[in-house]
Design a binder for these strands. Structure first.
Lengths: 223, 223
DNA sequence: CGTCCCCTTGAGTTATTTCAACACTCGTGG
DNA sequence: CCACGAGTGTTGAAATAACTCAAGGGGACG
């Protein structure tokens, strides 16, 4: 997956050391950007913060987080290499974003995008398409949270992750059980037990808690 | 709330009898439209159907519905007078829409909107803003489905509905318990029991199953 | 070698669901 | 006017999926 033009030689740098490049958000939507590196669990932007930038994962993984006043946490999405995140039509971010593992991220100024959108209907429509795709993903995820069992949630999650990586049944999960639980609306114990059960049922194989091979029968469990 | 310009004299008509008007989607976003009436439980458009039109509720209420192959149902949103729904960036609808009660709906051709968007960045951005607002509502709703208890879900729902109607603590719920349950990710029994409990706790008063008066303490339960 | 973090597993608890019965409203038709 | 049935909402009792609490395992790292 080509994320950045002239990506050759893009090595992770220390936080705050920018490097000018071009971010390719979609076919026909390229923008001047610079890149930054964030270490594991570092916050990329905060909820309610001014949305001065739009982001794209170059390498690593990012999570969208919302926290309730009493500490209950929800993860709205995971972003992998190539994914755009933090794109807001309004003035402020509505969730915070954190690096799941050490990650490199491309930043584009929001003003750049909005200027392009105001000048050119085609550019505006491409931004709209990105938001629209996010909306669709959320709708699918809402159905999961609304009506699926724990086994179905975990199965859907694994199948979804498999569909995003390189083809093949083996996947690497960069995120912790806690992250998965807060994404699926379960507890870490339930996630852990469910994975164990899927392995007992020969729907998956695990080697280490983050490397999982999916078997055919798993797809039947993805409600 | 002004929904249609020259709305005076807009009487419900039989399904399929169009009437040319102007739909005011947002400040600065007005489009030629016609109106149609749908009776209770009638389908307005189906999942996967070509998205030839965009809709706005004139009167009544509309629900977005998704159904799983085994019959499990989810309601993604309720739309009341003034709300725009069925706006897609892609070619097809991703959920079906049904009238909750007898409703009048304004229709705008999708091609009209897309032409306006391609020609004018400002128009495109206003469409983007509508989708972005939907996205925000979905994010809030996801947090509810992910982490809130039954009491919190029902309380949030009531407070949310109250915020959409005319000011005041009294609200009319046009939708059935089944609709509420499928919106909140609960069963009808749990919704019913929770409402009864809220009334016992003097957080609400009910007169008939669809007319509810909210008391101050309810807002504390809205997690 | 000890500590920290994360994951797993077990046992007991609980919120919510499931199943079943009953109440209420509203047309329709005798 | 009342009987009837369909549709909708409420309530109770039992079942269960998922949660909570608690303990232990294993790898990474100083």
């Amino acid at each position: 997956m080509q994320v950045l033009q002239s990506q050759v030689g893009a090595e992770p740098q220390t936080t705050g050391a920018p490097d000018r490049r071009i971010a390719q958000f979609a076919p026909g939507a390229a923008f001047a950007c610079f890149t930054m590196c964030f270490s594991r669990n570092e916050e990329i932007f905060a909820e309610e913060e001014e949305a001065d930038f739009v982001y794209q994962v170059v390498s690593g993984a990012v999570r969208d987080v919302r926290i309730m006043s009493d500490g209950r946490r929800q993860i709205g999405a995971f972003h992998l290499a190539g994914d755009v995140f933090g794109l807001e039509c309004g003035e402020r971010h509505r969730y915070s974003a954190e690096a799941v593992v050490d990650s490199e991220v491309a930043l584009v100024r929001r003003s750049t995008l909005h200027k392009a959108a105001d000048a050119d209907g085609g550019a505006a429509r491409r931004l709209w398409a990105i938001t629209s795709r996010d909306l669709q993903r959320l709708q699918d995820h809402m159905l999961l949270l609304c009506r699926k069992s724990a086994v179905e949630r975990v199965a859907s999650f694994l199948v979804g992750m498999a569909g995003r990586g390189v083809a093949g049944e083996a996947i690497d999960l960069p995120m912790s059980r806690t992250d998965i639980a807060d994404y699926l609306g379960l507890t870490i114990e339930t996630v852990s037990r469910t994975l164990t059960q899927l392995e007992r049922d020969r729907a998956i194989s695990m080697s280490g808690s983050r490397h999982i091979v999916l078997h055919d029968r798993l797809f039947a469990l993805d409600g």
